[in-house]
Design a protein around this nucleic acid. Structure first.
Lengths: 145, 145
DNA sequence: GTAGGGCTTCCCATCATGGGAAGGTCAAGG
DNA sequence: CCTTGACCTTCCCATGATGGGAAGCCCTAC
């Protein structure tokens, strides 16, 4: 199986497969005579594992730990659970943070007329009730080059 | 006021102030004889505006739009509200995504013994019930150089 | 005069992913 | 036999927002 087929079969892009190999998340695959990467079922399972872990929000570093635990038959499930529990806490923290933003913004948006007049509580909040500086907004917007 | 004082007064790091200037989010400050950046109250207000917008999760691009609206006295509050409403929707989408992760993970973690035995529903889920490939986990972990 | 702290620019790293160029390889079809 | 197109290879660059740090200039206090 070439990298394209492994990508198809696992849902991980070829680009990412090469990257995972480069950073040592997966081991270098075998190569065929023409120097193409060659994959088997085992490798596809590993890629699917990574894909699933990523879709649950685990970082590549956490994914690496989980992968190692998966392949360690003498693991203790407590080790796995610890990684998961930590990640859940992290997700909850980020969710709470965003919910705070939503709460504040919803309130402000609710108080904003959203009409043709310039008065806007959203801007007032952002400005901390300071008057806008007279100079116009910057236009060029050339990002770092 | 030098950049360090402006950073102190606004809560935006000196590093970031320079960056914002570089990408055109704020206009280049005046310079003193010794080529130091010089800031006044107006600039600090702008920086605080940016800081507040960032703390509400707005991207720098959205922040730029809000900044322009703030400085446009003939703005329509509808324009501001549109930016906010879009951002709220975005936040809600991301929250929902993460809540899905939390839900799945909480269930799996709850079902996991978290003891000294190797059996682990978390790994089973990640693996899609495939057996772990025999090769040990990769160790080197040398990131892209 | 020198020590320290602040400022300047410039480069690099993060995290995970994608885009794209330049070139090798292979199969099908004219 | 040659071309075309679809693969594959490596290499470099970009994203978004931020921080770290080096090398060198400026100013003030001792």
């Amino acid at each position: 199986m070439n990298i394209g087929q492994a990508a198809e079969a696992s849902g991980v892009s070829a680009k990412m497969i090469r990257y995972y190999e480069q950073i040592g998340l997966i081991r270098p695959s075998a190569r065929s005579d023409n120097n193409y990467r060659v994959y088997g079922e085992d490798e596809v399972h590993v890629l699917r594992f990574i894909k699933r872990a990523r879709s649950l929000g685990f970082s590549l570093e956490e994914t690496e730990r989980l992968l190692a635990l998966w392949q360690d038959r003498s693991r203790e499930s407590a080790s796995v659970k610890a990684v998961a529990v930590q990640h859940i806490a992290d997700l909850k923290r980020r969710i709470a943070e965003m919910e705070g933003m939503v709460k504040t913004l919803s309130h402000l948006a609710h108080c904003c007329g959203g009409d043709g007049r310039p008065d806007c509580p959203i801007l007032e909040d952002l400005a901390g009730h300071a008057p806008p500086p007279t100079p116009a907004a910057p236009r060029p917007r050339r990002r770092a080059q």
